[in-house]
Design a protein around this nucleic acid. Structure first.
Lengths: 348, 348
DNA sequence: GGAGTCTGCTTACACGTGTAATCTCGGCCG
DNA sequence: CGGCCGAGATTACACGTGTAAGCAGACTCC
């Protein structure tokens, strides 16, 4: 009498011992065969028997036991330090999928894990419990020094974090946000704009990125004696945008770099509703530049000019990570995660 | 002479044995103290000594060893079956963050893992290696029967999948996509529309959702004898939208449910560019309804009417999962992951 | 004063795996 | 015939943890 709901109550998963028993060999033989170390040690016929037994039982090795024995884990932890949930663009999603596939081919298991706790140290502890081979962050607040040290002390072979500079002992994955600002600034200056607003988003998770981008615009402006840069605080609500638009006149800005396309679209709409004209060309028009090059940003009129990130292929990044794991004592390195350039359209 | 780059080459992470030695007690005592099982077994002073030693050494328990010993894992795997990267909306991101936090409070480690391999079975194998306490999917193609069986055989206590119906032995997390279509259909019919187009997105990862939503609109239309439903194929490009808009006249549709806000915005813009008028009211206007209620969808004119999902709080979902893990032999259950309702604006 | 009880700690085993070291056995050579 | 060798398998140990069972000693009770 079988359970109609399926084999849900299977008492214990099959182990390599079970496979060994079924194939009539010792457990060691099973291990050699299933891990490809059988050449010249185990006969062909025996190998076939072992493989068949494993197949029939539906044997799946126990990753925990394996990494316990091996002394080194095989999971690569993609950490999302704080409430950076907002930063899950399609760009990131696509990268993540490719990254996990690439890691899998290299023998690692890529996994995404957010920060479950309030304190960054507590989050690092949670990650350390998994004894990952590597931990990396791509966005949000970068890992701080205590977190990096805790991870190293718990055996993490490679710690990679983004951001302009990494804490001691950590490698750097550089997606230089300053560059995004720099490109936007250069573009606007080349178009003759001189009084440039730069949106600082209110979302706390974006603060670090925002500051870097602002610094980039400032760097661009430094080359023009008469250029001015003005930070503008904006939240992701229509009210906030309307407020900013209402006070636009008195600021006298002729251009704005709006952090990303979402903020740009919001602000552009608000400016239009307040009676301003957006776009390139002479006159009192306001130039608007976003970032991320969303499809939707091309639907507004005028079409939104946007700073686009050319991301390093995930396979490459995975290869870097694997190399760093293999050489845990390596001096901290820096890898460019991508570059920015302007996709010029009608809005600026 | 210390390494200037930090303690990167720490030979081995501290174990509970090290803590025991430092505190001058046995390893068992350490385990009892650090797991809160010390009440009435270990003296206050000894407990303090143990805790101090653990703190000083930066001891972090080894999750693999722990779950190996315990026989049950503590990780909850949020699986993303195929190339569903596209479905990473802000909605999902926010849910994920809350879900991981909630699981952490319940003693589990929530982790997101995509399908690293081509075949679904291979993906299931990769998940099974981690011996997760639970596996759940929220979007993309639902788990199939072989995958569920493989997971169960490898000891996964609870398997939850979304979609209208789950394979035998799996629980169901129901975010009924038919309901989304139903609500949209009802809304349009109530507004007097009768010839309703329904966008079928070209992205393969969305096919399952799309069919359900279409079925929902059909169900709504079935209550009106003179209502017609027409599937419309649309890819997420401006060209595709333009093509669809150019052929609009001959179809004679007076309304469209565009799968989600992104497709809706794209199509609405294309229809407007082709000279059509969008919005409620009488005349030859076309009603457009999206889904997901994106902020950006309110920036177009007319403002986009959208079907919004009211998602169950992640804490609740985490509690369900925990309960199902505790009772692996439970009969398959169904939990509503959320409901849909229409946010009426100007476009339809 | 011996038997029982309670406190505080330790000893001993198990979880599933990988691999170095060892064993067995038949064949071959000197 | 004894020694050697290689192929093919096994034995034995370690990884870090949780916990049942055991044990020493102080106290209590009749």
């Amino acid at each position: 009498m079988t359970d109609p709901a399926g084999p849900r109550a299977t008492p214990t998963p099959p182990t390599s011992t079970a496979v060994a028993r079924r194939a009539g060999v010792s457990r060691a033989t099973v291990s050699y065969v299933l891990n490809g170390q059988a050449a010249g040690r185990v006969g062909e016929r025996t190998q076939a028997r072992v493989r068949a037994a494993a197949e029939e039982l539906g044997y799946v090795p126990h990753a925990a036991a394996r990494s316990l024995r091996a002394g080194r884990g095989s999971i690569v932890l993609l950490a999302a330090p704080a409430d950076t949930a907002v930063a899950f663009g399609p760009l990131f999603a696509r990268f993540l999928a490719g990254f996990q596939t690439a890691l899998h081919h290299l023998g690692y298991t890529g996994v995404l894990h957010g920060a479950p706790a309030a304190s960054p140290t507590a989050a690092a502890r949670a990650w350390a419990e998994l004894r990952p081979a590597a931990v990396l962050t791509l966005h949000g607040p970068p890992l701080d020094a205590p977190a990096v040290e805790l991870l190293h002390r718990s055996g993490t072979a490679a710690v990679l974090t983004h951001g302009p500079s990494a804490p001691p002992g950590a490698h750097t994955l550089l997606l230089d946000q300053r560059e995004a600002g720099l490109r936007a600034g250069e573009h606007l200056l080349a178009r003759g704009r001189r009084r440039i607003g730069v949106v600082r988003p209110a979302e706390p998770g974006l603060a670090a990125f925002a500051e870097s981008r602002l610094a980039g615009v400032r760097a661009a402006a430094a080359t023009h004696p008469d250029a001015e840069v003005h930070p503008l605080d904006l939240a992701l609500t229509e009210e906030s945008a309307a407020r900013l638009a209402a006070a636009w006149q008195e600021r006298g800005l002729d251009a704005v770099f709006a952090y990303n396309d979402e903020y740009a679209m919001l602000l552009m709409r608000a400016l239009q509703d307040a009676g301003h004209t957006i776009g390139t060309g002479a006159g009192g028009r306001i130039a608007v530049v976003g970032a991320d090059d969303l499809l939707l940003a091309r639907l507004l009129r005028p079409r939104l000019t946007s700073v686009r990130a050319e991301i390093t292929p995930p396979e490459r990044v995975a290869a870097w990570v694997a190399a760093l794991i293999r050489d845990p004592a390596a001096a901290p390195t820096t890898h460019r995660l991508g570059t920015f350039h302007v996709e010029a359209r009608d809005s600026g």
